[in-house]
Design a protein around this nucleic acid. Structure first.
Lengths: 358, 358
DNA sequence: TTGTAAGCGTTATCAA
DNA sequence: TTGATAACGCTTACAA
C-alpha cells in the first residue's frame, strides 16, 4: 500500500509537491492533455512513478460523474447457469476490452425479473455503472423502456421485438440451427423434433423458428415441438414426451447442449441407439460435446467475441457516439457422430464428420 | 431518471431544501443516527421519497473512503469455466448477501496469474473494492502475501498452505471423495484410479490425498493416479492412459464431473460398460449428472452456501471485526448407477442408489 | 436538536 | 504554460 511518511494514502497533492507544480498540472500531465511543457510533464510523470501513485478511482468518479464501470444483470436461477457456457465466455470477452480501458464490470445475479427491474433502478440511481448489457432478451421486454426512462446507456444482445433506442449487437443463431436441420433432412430424416427453451426468450423463438422454417421449406410439418426450460431435467422430460409420439421422431434438435445430453441419456434408456435410431443436435457446442460418446453435434456461437463487440459498442455509446447496430458472424453447425442417416431410409453415403461453416 | 426542474440530478441539497433543513440533517436522518427529532426525520424521509432520492454511491464512496464493493478475481481460461458449476453458484450466494448489504460485486476474469497479481494491485490502488475473495488456492500461493502487503482485506476459500493473516472459509471436499472411494472398496474394487486436476491447486491435492489415504487405509496401493487439467479433453486423455495400465482399473474417481463424463465416453469407446466393467465417480455433482446414462455418481459441495458464508465473513472483516475461520458442512458423496460391484468379484448385494450424507 | 463548514481526491474553469 | 479555485455529492466534526 502506498503511503506517505505521514501514513496517509498518496494523493495527487503529494505528486504535485514533489514535482513542484500544482495539482491541476499533474492531472493534465497524466491524462496527457495539451497545455503542459514537455520537461514539466516528464518531471510530473517521474514523480508519480517514484511515489507509485495512481489516480484514485473514487475521486475520479465523483468529479467526472462517471462510474468507469459497466453493469451486467443476469436473471437466472443459479442451477441453470452452472452448465451454461455462455456467460463465462461472454464475461471473459467483456473483460478483455474493459481491462484495457481501465474499467470494471459490476455483476448482479438476480433470481426474478421483479428484482431485476429494481436492480437496474438501483444501479442507475446509485450511479454505480455508466451503462449496462441487456442479455436474454424477452418478448415485449420491459427493460428496453425502463432503461430508456432511466437514461441509462445500454446495448442489447440481439434485436428486441419492441422499438428500442439502444444499439443492438446481434449474432444470428438461427443460421446454425437451420444448417443442422438441413443436414438432418439431407440424411433422410422426415420426423425431426425440437426441444426448445421457454418462448419468452427471443433466442428460444428464433431457434425454434429456424427449425420450423427449414422443415417447411422441405415440405415437412413442424409438429414435433416441445418446450423445456434449458435444464437437464426439463430436456429429459420433453424428450420422453416426444419419443412417445407416433410416428416417432428420428431426430431431435435441442435449444442447448445440456438438454441434448440429457436427451441422449433418455434415448439410451429407451434402448434407442444414437445415431442409429435417433439423431441428436444440441446448441452452444460446449467443450464437452466432442468428448461424449457419440460426439454431440451442436451449433457454435461466439460468446467471447460477442462480449468484446458488445463492450466496445457500449463504451462508444457512453462516450457520446451513436454506434450503429452490429451484426456478428452467424452461428455455425458443428456436425459430429450424434447424427446419422435416417433409420430404414437409405440415402447416399456421406460422412457426418463435416463441420459446416455456413 | 430523477432530475430537478433545472435538469440536474437530485442531490441531498434538494432534499434538504424541500424539508427545510440542512444537508447534514438529511444525512443523519437517512442513516438513522441519533440527533434528529422524530418529526424532522419524518419530514426529511418524506421529502426524499417524494423526490425519489437515493444517496449517490460515488459521493458516498469518496467521503467515506470506501468502495461498497467486493472483488472477485478469477484466473481461468474461459473454456474451463464454461462447464464449471462452481462460480455461478458461488456468485449467486455472494449476491444474496451483498444485495441486502447494498453493495456490489466487481468481477475480474483474467487469463494468467501474472495478470492476476496486477489486477489485485490495480483493484487496491484504484480503491475499487473494499475486499476480495481468494478462490482456487494454489500451493505456496503468492496472493496471500500480496494481499497482506496491499493491506486489502481478503477471505480465502479454504486454508492456504502458507501462513495467512486472512480469515478462511473452508469446505472439506476430501470427505466426500473419501466416502466415494470407500463405497467402491465396499463393492469389491481393488484397482481404483484417480484423475485429478493440476496439483498446483490445493483442492486438487486434497481430493487426491483423500483418494490415496482411503486406499491406504484399506491396504491398497494408490498407484493409478493421473493428473489432468479439468477439461473434457484432458480427462479423456488421462482415462485412456489409465485404461492401458495392467491390471486395469475397475473404478475411476475424477476431480470434476466434466472429466468424469468424458471418461465415461472413453470407456464406452473401449467397449467397456459403465458400471459393469468400470465404475465412475465425478466431483461437483452438476445437475446434468443425474440425467446421464448411467446417472453419474459424484461429490456434492455447496458453492452457494460457500458464497454466502465467505461474503459475510469478508463484510465483517471490512467492518473492522476479526472473524474466526469458518468450517462449512463437508462435501457428501452422491452415489448413483455409474458405480457398481467390481466385475468378477461377487460381493454382497447392495443398491447403489444410496445418497451418503456422511 | 440543528446548521455550518471542512474534508474526501480528482477534474475543470479561469485568471495570471 | 501554469496555478488557484471551484465543482462533484456526500459524511462528519464542531458550533450554535
Amino acid at each position: 500500500m502506498n503511503r506517505t511518511a505521514k501514513g496517509s494514502r498518496v494523493t495527487i497533492a503529494d505528486v504535485a509537491r514533489r514535482a513542484g507544480v500544482s495539482a491541476g498540472a499533474v492531472s493534465f500531465a497524466l491524462n496527457d492533455r495539451p497545455g503542459v511543457a514537455e520537461p514539466t510533464r516528464r518531471r510530473i510523470l517521474d514523480a508519480a512513478a517514484e511515489l507509485n501513485w495512481t489516480p484514485n478511482a473514487r475521486a475520479k468518479s465523483l468529479s467526472q460523474s462517471k462510474a468507469f464501470a459497466l453493469g451486467l444483470v443476469i436473471a437466472r436461477r443459479p442451477e441453470l447457469l452452472g452448465a451454461d457456457p455462455f456467460f463465462p465466455s461472454f464475461i471473459a470477452g467483456v473483460e478483455t476490452v474493459l481491462a484495457e480501458a481501465g474499467q470494471s464490470l459490476v455483476l448482479n445475479m438476480v433470481a426474478t425479473p421483479a428484482i431485476e427491474q429494481e436492480t437496474y433502478r438501483r444501479l442507475s440511481a446509485d450511479g454505480r455503472v455508466d451503462g449496462v448489457f441487456v442479455t436474454d432478451l424477452r418478448a415485449g421486454d420491459e427493460r428496453i423502456a425502463l432503461l430508456a426512462e432511466l437514461a441509462l446507456p445500454a446495448v442489447t444482445l440481439g434485436r428486441p421485438d419492441v422499438t428500442s433506442p439502444h444499439p443492438a449487437v446481434c449474432l444470428d443463431d438461427a443460421h446454425g440451427v437451420a444448417a443442422a436441420v438441413r443436414a438432418l433432412i439431407e440424411r433422410g430424416h422426415r420426423h425431426i423434433g425440437h426441444v426448445g427453451g421457454p418462448l419468452t426468450f427471443l433466442h428460444s423463438r428464433s431457434r425454434r423458428r429456424a427449425w420450423a422454417e427449414e422443415l417447411a421449406t422441405a415440405g415437412l410439418p413442424a409438429n414435433l415441438g416441445a418446450v423445456a426450460d434449458f435444464t437437464a431435467a426439463g430436456g429429459a422430460q420433453a424428450t420422453v414426451q416426444l419419443l412417445r409420439r407416433r410416428p416417432r421422431p428420428t431426430a431431435l434438435v435441442y435449444g442447448n447442449d445440456v438438454m441434448a445430453i440429457a436427451g441422449i441419456a433418455v434415448a439410451q434408456q429407451h434402448q434407442l441407439r444414437v445415431p442409429a435410431d435417433l439423431s441428436i443436435v444440441g446448441f452452444d457446442d460446449i467443450t464437452l460435446a466432442e468428448h461424449l460418446h457419440p460426439p454431440l453435434s451442436s451449433v457454435r456461437t461466439d460468446p467471447f467475441g460477442w462480449g468484446q463487440a458488445a463492450t466496445r459498442v457500449l463504451l462508444e455509446l457512453i462516450a457520446g457516439e451513436s454506434p450503429p447496430d452490429l451484426e456478428l458472424p452467424a452461428a455455425a453447425a458443428v456436425l459430429r457422430e450424434s447424427i446419422g442417416d435416417c433409420p430404414g431410409q437409405p440415402t447416399r453415403k456421406r460422412s457426418p464428420r463435416v463441420k459446416e461453416k455456413t
